[in-house]
Design a protein around this nucleic acid. Structure first.
Lengths: 154, 154
DNA sequence: AACAATTTAGTTGCACACGATTAACCTGTG
DNA sequence: CACAGGTTAATCGTGTGCAACTAAATTGTT
């Protein structure tokens, strides 16, 4: 990859990921409209449907989000009746996030709705998993580039 | 893909794209630190380095961004000396966005810096282009699902 | 016990992203 | 010319993301 020949915008992998991510967001926003959930709220519930309760920190490390993003998001989910937030008795710094009965009841309905929408895309299972794997590899590459490497070049 | 067996969060393609997109964003934020540019500002300049001037609408259709996002972003780029914004004489509804001399001068420096950083990832050209193509295919799938399809299921 | 260092969630400030609305402008038709 | 209908950029409101900071609580060390 030469440093003198600039890649066009549409040939940039970053732009493809950026655009695709926004399209996914839009897709889920539509699919989740019946439940009044945004995409970040949905993945938060997904994480909790897998494991709950979790502290804000644990949830954040699953989702790669910090408290600055999660705290207001969780407050909205609480207000809408999906989760409860309660400070731990053992360690009062931590806040335990747990699902409400409403969230447990709605789980299968949300799954079914989202999966129906995904089915419309007509993904082949093999393609899906192969692409998933490649995206994970890109993430590994991105993780392996430390800030130190970048500062060296500055 | 069954609707009864829920996929784990880490097996969801949407979450992989969501996470990868955030990592790319962080990567570019670091790479572009010397120029005080955010990633959306960078792709805006990329588009303009390819074609300029452009109206806000043209720019928006290249980047898939609407005026609600672009107007404040462009004002910041203008304030920092990268672009100029001028209402068209022929059609006063339109605003022509053009590069400043500063932006033209800095172009190669920005390209070199970003490409150096991308080189650190060690991408193979064939892999890169194959993955790019697959991401484009996913975007096509997402585009082909209209809101109508989703509403039918609601 | 005392107290410095660390951990945790919350807060603040800034920059997107986007739906919905608004205001100004252009265009086509009568 | 008049004016309804469409286009364009800007504005507003809500919801992320994230860096930097704060406050409270816990832990480690003396």
């Amino acid at each position: 990859m030469s440093n003198t020949t600039p890649r066009l915008l549409d040939e940039q992998l970053c732009f493809a990921f950026y655009s695709a991510s926004k399209k996914f967001n839009h897709f889920y926003q539509d699919a989740l409209k019946p439940f009044h959930l945004t995409y970040p709220q949905y993945i938060t519930l997904l994480a909790l449907w897998e494991t709950s309760p979790m502290t804000v920190r644990e949830l954040g490390s699953h989702l790669n989000l910090d408290s600055g993003t999660l705290t207001p998001l969780l407050k909205r989910l609480e207000k809408q009746g999906w989760i409860s937030r309660k400070r731990s008795d053992q360690d009062e710094r931590q806040v335990n996030v747990d699902l409400t009965d409403y969230a447990l009841e709605k789980r299968d309905e949300v799954y079914a709705r989202v999966n129906d929408c995904i089915d419309l895309m007509g993904f082949d299972d093999v393609d899906y998993n192969q692409l998933l794997d490649q995206v994970h590899q890109v993430m590994t590459k991105l993780d392996n580039i430390s800030n130190k490497d970048l500062i060296h070049e500055a």
